[in-house]
Nucleic acid binder design. Sequence first.
DNA 1: CAATCAAATATCCTATAGGATTTGATATCG
DNA 2: CGATATCAAATCCTATAGGATATTTGATTG
Lengths: 226, 226
Amino acid sequence: MRRPDDTAGEMLRRPISLANEVYEALYGQLMSLKIEPGSRISVDQLVRSLGVSQTPIREALSRLEAQGLVVKQHLLGFRAADQLDRARLNEIYEMRMMLEVFAAGRFAERRSKAELKELRSLDNEMKGIDAGQSRSAYGEFAKRDAAFHGFMAKRCGNELVFDTLNRFHIHVHLFRLHFHARATTDANKEHEQLMIAVENGNAAAAEEAMRHHLERSKSRFEGAFE
Amino acid sequence: MRRPDDTAGEMLRRPISLANEVYEALYGQLMSLKIEPGSRISVDQLVRSLGVSQTPIREALSRLEAQGLVVKQHLLGFRAADQLDRARLNEIYEMRMMLEVFAAGRFAERRSKAELKELRSLDNEMKGIDAGQSRSAYGEFAKRDAAFHGFMAKRCGNELVFDTLNRFHIHVHLFRLHFHARATTDANKEHEQLMIAVENGNAAAAEEAMRHHLERSKSRFEGAFE
DNA sequence: CAATCAAATATCCTATAGGATTTGATATCG
DNA sequence: CGATATCAAATCCTATAGGATATTTGATTG
């Protein structure tokens, strides 16, 4: 499943789909925690608040359910997915440990000069955001961090790896947001190690750097459960 | 308030969902290739042939789209997903190589006596089929093979790994069916190696056996592209 | 005859309505 | 007072209808 905003590139834009509009609206509200995890989502209420009929709303919710952002029970309706618990977070990190380490290695082997430049600039932007700043500053950091990881995943030569990781990133993002995570200088240092390995085209080193980064990242998050 | 006849514990049977019925019907037709890969799927035609309205049909198709069995284009409708091409098959095997090797290792560490017994009986059933070369016999083999792999994935301790693999397995199944894949005796030998490692609780050996099995499996399938 | 255009048909997308079920509030009983 | 039953409202699920778009058919022209 792709991000909702990758329709760019289509010169001929067909008339927009209402279902798509609703999807984006709900996606935004879920990602910003305006709709609380676990809370009920009534179709009829959305009909009134959004001013569109049930049909496109149900379709949008169906797609969100496929992404795991929403859960549906027959005759009971939709709910926003629950917050990640410890076990689930652990599962996600086990997956990332496999897929992102793979992606880092393959990207290190295939990356072009232009890609390196783009990635480096993302990295620099992140370093420009001070650690321990406000929550909105973290939003900017998180956006770059997701782009940084996604950049390598997308260019690892395996689209399934990218799609699968994308599914998880959404939930990690929500988790971070909920626990008021901050940008850290540690993460920047770990990214730097990864950048160097990638720039050298050293796949083994890139894999190791990514592994180390994910392990540290995980232990930083686990503090939230204490 | 409880109903008079729900003493069966979890089997709370709510009135069936039409959307669900349609989903199952279409799923079956797709999995048996009654609906050809790449062919168009018209909602209005299904309304006439299934005798239900558009709404549950659209919802069923939405779910199939999330599973990757169907693709939708705005204003153009739904199509059955294309057959796997070589690049895509390769991507799936790269993923399986990571996730199933992981699953085999974790399962070898955690498996109970009862689980071992169940897995062994599945394995034996497969070996009994092995001689038969007919197409229907292969169907039986494929069913067990899927159960065999799924059994370990489901018990590896990581539900995301299981869910992700499940998504791919559907496509592998279709691919196999289309190319009338055979060669079951080799697979049985490889399974035997895996069983031994699992029974010994030797995670490293189980991982290696799974890795070897997948490599061989992949090269068997690649013959279809020659 | 091939290519182009126009009308007719098929299909998709959205809106609306109504039956079925759940949920929440009120009343009743022990 | 607490628990259960009853009724009303909210909500879900499905059916149907109609406007918008795509596709096919048929006619016209070079």
